[in-house]
């Protein structure tokens, strides 16, 4: 995935049955972001695979003052990449989940 300078990871073990994920996002490469942001803070949030969209979460993060409007695309993309990865992992190994 193209590097947005942001990192998104599971904040908790994925139990695969729950549609709500606990994710954590932080700035790994501040140079890649346009707007002002707090770079030594990780933001933990829940993401529901069925009802939430990366763009919506990114918009809420901008509105909460975590990121600048110009970086909301990068935030949404980093969330989307991680969520897509998690969905693929879940499809591949339903047995061990």
């Amino acid at each position: 995935a193209e590097d947005t300078g942001l990192r998104v990871e599971l904040a908790e073990e994925d139990d695969c049955s729950n549609s709500s994920l606990a994710l954590r996002l932080w700035v790994e490469d501040p140079k890649k972001l346009k707007g002002k942001h707090k770079d030594n803070e990780a933001i933990e949030f829940s993401f529901n695979l069925e009802t939430d969209t990366p763009e919506e979460v990114a918009y809420e993060m901008v509105r909460s003052g975590f990121f600048h409007e110009s970086d909301s695309k990068a935030v949404a993309k980093s969330i989307r990449d991680r969520v897509t990865l998690i969905k693929k992992t879940r499809e591949k190994k339903p047995a061990s989940c």
Binding site: R7, W26, E28, D29, N40, E41, A42, I43, E44, F45, S46, V57, E60, M61, R63, S64, F66
Partner: peptide
């Protein structure tokens, strides 16, 4: 930890905590 801050936005809860130094230099 005391540095953890909870921010509510449009019904979603964001928990802000410091990133461990080790994670920052990992990339």
């Amino acid at each position: 930890s005391s540095l953890t801050q909870v921010v509510h936005s449009a019904g979603r809860r964001f928990i802000v905590s410091p990133v461990p130094e080790s994670r920052l230099r990992e990339s």
